[in-house]
Design a protein around this nucleic acid. Structure first.
Lengths: 105, 105
DNA sequence: CGGAATCCCTTGCGATACTG
DNA sequence: CAGTATCGCAAGGGATTCCG
């Protein structure tokens, strides 16, 4: 077993990456529909507002879990979101979280 | 695949259980030393204060992830902490978190 | 030894309105 | 369509002090 200090440090950093009210939900939606659009994400994330979706996406992009592809230089824009390789690597973790919830909630 | 709504609901509730700066670290320490004492937890959780350890433990106990066994009715007290069955069921999840951190941070 | 009480600061979250 | 600007509330986190 590794030292407790190493363990808690790594786990805390992982938690920081995905902490927040919306981030895991958004990651999951993008995983299920690569290239999903901003308004699609908004409509499928019950209760989220523009500003929270914008902020959450910005955080995910800066964490290199999500990438953005903006097409067009004038309205109507077409912005598509994808998981990066790093983002995709989180999928098993998200499924583990979901499994625990199914079995223990 | 289950519906996105069900997924996000379950995952959010799991995250709520373990969210916070100290809770997973504390769970891990108790897992590694059943019956660990308050001051042992404090000394092994770098930077935590009395009040934060008290609050975190109270939250974990009310979530039925940790149980407390207080011995004695006057100072010096001996308070011991244990994982409940529910708390132990989180161990694979914590290890998955740690594994992801080792591979991706 | 194992806490609790109080006060305070920072951060996250969100309502509303506006824009290229 | 895909955001941004502003303002404000509430919750989380923490320093300090005190206690049975």
């Amino acid at each position: 077993m590794q030292s407790t200090t190493d363990w808690s440090c790594g786990v805390s950093r992982v938690m920081d990456l995905v902490a927040g009210k919306w981030k895991l939900n958004i990651l999951w939606l993008i995983y299920n529909e690569e290239g999903i659009r901003f308004n699609q994400l908004k409509n499928r994330t019950i209760g989220i507002t523009n500003i929270m979706l914008t902020r959450s996406l910005a955080t995910l992009i800066s964490a290199e879990l999500v990438s953005n592809n903006l097409v067009g230089d004038k309205a109507p824009f077409k912005s598509k979101y994808y998981l990066t390789a790093r983002g995709k690597s989180l999928v098993p973790l998200m499924q583990t979280l979901n499994d625990w919830g199914q079995n223990n909630l």
